[in-house]
Nucleic acid binder design. Structure first.
Length: 269
DNA sequence: GCGCAGGTAATCT
DNA sequence: AGATTACCTGCG
């Protein structure tokens, strides 16, 4: 099916924006995304037209919310303070990025794994876990493992996925979710502050990872994770001052623009 | 061989 | 509260 997406939409930037680690550019101009047991390939047909290899119904029910298509990102960029020259420039470079609505469980584990790893290393670890105990969807494509599946892995198997000291964190999270001590579904109804606190009760989850999960799984666009790249942006362009304070909302989206820009330009002061 | 990378938690002052 | 350090792995 062919669909037209008029608002900001650039899958290549989304894939490189550090929010998802299983999506790929399969071949030039064709991008593959995975969520639960769904897979979609999007091919750029120009003029804002995209070919999606899934039925209309699946697009509407799964991918439309996944790509957050009901939010007007161009308007979010327009709302940037004209005096905020740095953000204007970063948003221009990053236009097309959207905040994907991904699975809370997958985000929790993925961002626990992410600490002190670069993007390729995160991809490898997640890929290994999926191969090891995900369900097969296609030839070489697997679902993200369930909490039960991760729970049953041995320390050796977890360590074999290059989790290192994070292995007990992953196991602990899997255990809590599998036995119901941590109900990721119930967190959806919480206010941002309560959600962050609840996430931080998991071992291996600090303020940064909690913000990532809130933003990328629960759509909390006011949550702005500060990692070393954002710290550099704050240092280089904002004199150490909080760049999000002047904005009432959408700090998480602006954070994503900053992150992509900093990463792409290997920002140094 | 050594230092560092998209962080957290324990242990200091 | 704020600073320091160990932690597993891969890479230059």
């Amino acid at each position: 099916m062919i669909l037209q997406i008029k608002d900001d939409f650039d899958p290549r930037k989304i894939i490189q924006s550090g929010q998802c680690f299983r999506a790929t550019e399969e071949k030039p101009d064709t991008y593959r995304f995975v969520t639960q047991s769904h897979v979609v390939r999007l091919t750029d047909r120009g003029e804002n037209n995209w070919e999606a290899d899934c039925p209309q119904k699946e697009w509407n029910e799964v991918w439309r919310p996944y790509f957050d298509l009901d939010r007007h990102y161009a308007a979010v960029r327009v709302a940037i303070d004209p005096e905020d020259q740095a953000l204007l420039r970063m948003a221009e470079t990053s236009a097309g990025i959207r905040i994907l609505r991904q699975e809370p469980w997958e985000m929790l584990i993925t961002f626990i794994i992410s600490q002190r790893k670069n993007i390729p290393a995160i991809r490898r670890s997640v890929e290994s876990l999926c191969r090891l105990c995900g369900e097969r969807i296609e030839d070489d494509l697997y679902t993200f493992p369930t909490p039960q599946a991760l729970c049953e892995l041995s320390d050796e198997q977890l360590t074999g996925c290059s989790l290192g000291y994070r292995a007990p964190y992953v196991h602990d999270a899997a255990h809590r979710v599998a036995e119901g001590t941590l109900d990721l579904e119930a967190l959806k109804n919480m206010e941002d502050g309560a959600l962050l606190s609840a996430l931080e009760t998991v071992r291996g989850v600090g303020i940064k990872v909690a913000n990532c999960v809130s933003l990328f799984a629960y759509g909390r666009v006011d949550c702005a994770p500060v990692d070393v790249w954002i710290a550099r942006v704050i240092e280089c362009y904002y004199n150490g001052r909080n760049p999000f304070a002047r904005y009432e909302k959408n700090g998480g989206i602006y954070q994503q623009y900053m992150f992509y820009y900093a990463q792409q330009t290997k920002l140094e002061c």
